[in-house]
């Protein structure tokens, strides 16, 4: 098991695996997301109370869900950075943070647009919305801190600590709707109960969540490849990559 773990730390090994995985992630992700969104937009029945405005759920929930998952993944990678000093974990944090930032922004924006017709307001400082805004700032802080420190090793360590400190926000986001009075409704999907919506609504929702997950996988691989190339461009294996390619041509 440890051997596998160390292999995982090899940028060269990861670069190859990512190259093989990426087409699958992209195609499957686009298919799932496309199917989920078309189904949700045009074929799912409207809601008895909110009418058609609830169709925003098919992008709001996947992006909010991903925004939190990505942060949890980054926090796990931060532990690996701090304890094992594994380069690849740091590469992941740097590659994923901008994606998380965009996803958090999308969930806040779509939430505001959805809130206007249903609640009657774009924004309210309730616990769920505020903790989600803090997540946006955390992503921004991670990116800014990484840019601010020039030395690669210090940047990796500082960023990892910031990511770890911020992880306490995740349970607050998740449970804010249960712990406090909020305008935001509780979760529709729960792990232990069946979803409080019929199948013709939750199946497309689940499809778009899976699709967005796969697309995140593709984005993460792509961005990690970029970061690895920048860091390792003078190493032997990166040069070999092109010479082999060039020879085949």
């Amino acid at each position: 098991m440890w051997q596998f773990f160390h292999k995982l730390g090899s940028p060269k090994w990861f670069y190859g695996i990512a190259a093989r995985l990426m087409p699958w992630l992209l195609v499957l992700g686009l298919l799932c997301l496309g199917a989920g969104l078309v189904w949700g937009l045009a074929f799912a029945p409207k809601d008895y109370l909110q009418g058609n405005s609830y169709r925003i759920i098919f992008i709001h929930v996947p992006s909010a869900f991903l925004a939190q998952s990505v942060y949890i993944m980054m926090a796990s990678a931060a532990v690996v950075t701090l304890v094992w000093r594994m380069k690849l974990a740091d590469v992941f944090v740097k590659a994923a943070a901008p994606v998380g930032l965009v996803l958090t922004f999308i969930s806040l924006f779509t939430g505001a647009v959805w809130g206007k017709p249903t609640w009657g307001t774009w924004w309210i400082w309730d616990a769920r919305l505020t903790s989600m805004l803090i997540l946006l700032f955390l992503y921004g802080g991670v990116i800014a801190l990484d840019r601010a420190i020039n030395d690669e090793k210090s940047a990796a360590r500082a960023v990892a600590i910031l990511v770890l400190v911020g992880v306490v926000n995740i349970p607050i986001i998740k449970y804010s709707v249960d712990w406090w009075n909020t305008l935001h409704q509780p979760a529709t999907f729960k792990l232990t109960e069946k979803p409080s919506m019929p199948a013709e609504m939750w199946v497309p929702l689940l499809l778009s969540v899976i699709g967005l997950y796969l697309l995140f996988g593709w984005l993460a691989c792509l961005r990690m490849q970029t970061e690895i190339l920048i860091r390792e461009q003078r190493t032997r294996w990166v040069q070999d990559l092109f010479h082999v390619n060039g020879g085949a041509r």
């Binding site: 937009l41 058609n52 709001h60 965009v102």
Partner: peptide, 24 residues
């Protein structure tokens, strides 16, 4: 038109698609 909710729904989807496309 989405029974009057069109602007809200399409604004959300528009922002989603534009941002994801720019990112990808």
């Amino acid at each position: 038109a989405m029974e009057g909710h069109g602007p809200y729904v399409w604004a959300s989807y528009g922002v989603f698609f534009v941002l994801m496309a720019v990112l990808m």
